[in-house]
Design a binder for these strands. Sequence first.
RNA 1: GCCGAGGUGGCGGAACAGGCAGACGCGUCGGUCUCAAAAACCGAUGUCCGCAAGGACGUGCGGGUUCGACUCCCGCUCUCGGCACCA
Length: 803
Amino acid sequence: MPQEIEPKWQQIWAERGVMKASDSSPKPKFYDLVMYPYPSGDLTVGHARNYVMGDVLARMKRMQGFEVLHPFGWDAFGLPAENAAMKRGNIHPETWTLGNIAKGKAELKMMGILYDWDREVTSCLPDYYRWTEWLFLLMYERGLAYRAMAPVNWCPVDKTVLANEQVINGRCWRHPDVEVEKRDLEQWFFKITDYADRLLADLALLDKWPNKVRVMQTNWIGRSEGAEVEFPVVGLEGEVVRIYTTRPDTLFGATFMVLAPEHPLVERITTEEHRARVREYVEKARKETEIERQSTERAKEGVATGGFAINPVNGEKIPIWVADYVLITYGTGAIMAVPAHDERDFEFARTYSLPIREVIAPDDGPSDTLREAYVGPGRLVNSGEFSGLDSATAIDRICEWLQAQGKGKRAVKYRLRDWLISRQRYWGCPIPIVYCSVDGIVPVPLDQLPVVLPKEYKPLADNPSFWKTTCPKCGEEARRETDTMDTFVDSSWYFLRYTDPHDATRPFDPELANHWMAVDQYTGGVEHAILHLLYSRFFTKVLHDAGLIEVSEPFMRLFNQGMVKRFGQVMSKSLGNGVSFDELVAAQGADAGRIYEMFIGPPEEDVEWTDAGLNGVSRFLQRVWRLVLEPEKIVVEGSGADASALSRKVAQTVGKVTEHFDELRFNTAVAALMELANTMQDYLQRGGERDERWVGAVRTLVKLLNPLAPHVAEEMWERLGEKGMLADASWPVYDAAVAAEPRLTLVVQVGGRVRDRLTVEPGLSEADALAAAMGSDKVRGALNGRGPSKVVYVKDRLINLVP
RNA sequence: GCCGAGGUGGCGGAACAGGCAGACGCGUCGGUCUCAAAAACCGAUGUCCGCAAGGACGUGCGGGUUCGACUCCCGCUCUCGGCACCA
């Protein structure tokens, strides 16, 4: 197999513009998207797995007659560029980034991965980020971008704030060893919480997403239903503590209240006598890290404020405490404590000898609420007029009562918080806002976009030539916003830019976006199960509401590929276990590498890269080459070649491979092709004729191999044409007619009950089908010792079967 | 603790609207070629008994349904992922 065929075909594909997507093609569209990468410059064959999958799918869909949009781009803003710049002295982040992009692009081409490079998107270039700024202003205009002072997560290493989604177990997502700090800062937020209900509800539409991802998003959004209730504070006229509870049926069991240490009422409620201790406690809580505070292991501690509140349902006077097991960030930052029916409250009550009153009796026997909290539903006791009701009814009734009395109302809460998008970094998309002492916050007018990132690499706040400006409204001196945006803002809409990448007047043409959207297949790592996918869904919904796009969900089908490991660790250049594209192509060629990436294991699983495995795939390709172009070299070693078995195998393989490709089960698709090659080899070894049937098998093998090993397949196809073995030597088209040939199913009934189904060869006569059915173990087993039975064609044609 | 996904040869893994378990590949063993080795090619390869024909046992464990269970049901167990004081 000659080596030089790879550059040859890569050049031909480029010249022919094979992967250029036409906006006006009459063919059905297929939008095949891979998550655009951060150009870190350490691309290995591990990363390539994702791109090979996308390419195989794109090539297959093209062969099947789709107009395929298969674009690529770069998530080019972000911290690693700044870190590299710092480490290497005077390299500008842009130089570093664009250099890596050029390198990465060449490597992808080397693997025969085809994109419509005319649509390439690079998020750090002004012709892209201009529209990121534009979209920020759209958010602002729609009331979805706001500036607020809030306790935010601060990464002390990256020296910037982080979104909630970027904090994992209280640590920075980029530095698993570094705990984030809480700081009170005024920052920009996107109001993603306005979309919480829709982001949750529409998950139901995404039935082609991995269940795992949908569950993760559901949990992240964290909807809960309950009630907000107001407890008047004793001695403070008109002042109430508002609490949120999911169990209004336990209201009569509230024996105390707890405020989060940060709760604004703490100071006012605390009595003189308790002030010193409360202040000390609040101070201590503030100093603790999130990790310490959020540990469920640790004992619950708190202090009494000396203040009291009135339980609105029974007028009871109950003490108000402060404890850090109540979070200021969830609900109202205050709770009613029902120790008999909440484990946390129970633990707290036991620690401080607070009263425990049972108000829910379990349906199945007595509970012992002095030993442990009963958290399940049951029948209300000790609950005044509501006693005797079951939990569900009581929740309804009590909510109605609260509402009627003006003391509370039903409420829905989410765990999801607004998306903090400010970053105190240079290498990001500028936030197009100006602060004027007269006009306040002033958005940069659309015709003044983009706010260009200055060439000089230093903090924007230290660069007066950047931030010194004039107010767009009044013309007085003003100051620009010097924070940049989270790079996840850039990536929340790039899939839309691909549909209209050169538009100089808007982010995208709605008509083009509507033509290509939604993405039919989206492939990328599961690490974005929440972050990127949630943000992109949010953006899409906002754009939908703004009338810019018809779809309200961006990605119809999602696939998360597993990682490639070597020596037990994820492949990476810095760990020294990476295999580069050059090494791979030099060792066994791009096609062997591509097939190996697909064959190495189930696409969603993590896999271990071995050179021996790659070698095996290489042998397979060599064998195919011999079978297709040099069959005379195969030594005849036996007899009894079965031509009809060969034909059957060919038909079977077409069906299998098509199915497996469609389901992205590339490993079994490759296995099916290997089986076909083995059968073909066996056929020749047994002295099979190289007749029309043989040529048919050869053609099928080459066609099916094309998406996986395009260089070799194209070369073989061309040479077959030269040998006169093809009626038409043009670009191979997937034989949809063969692929779609329906299989005939017999339904086996025994005693009127469907016992089994049996797939038989298509094209059989009724008698032959019957004979086939009777001859199968499946049917014989089903009929074993049974009475009169019958076999039924799926389309209501009955055949009597005599056992 | 809660939620989710999984346990199949020496290894990665196939098969599953119930029907010949172990496809395909790796590895190992034997052979061809070679002075030799590697590569390549050909063949064997679940375990146990047997010279063989053949037989027994086999999909984490224990039950169940069925003519028939890796597949369905019930109960365990272990592994991996996610979330976790969310009131």
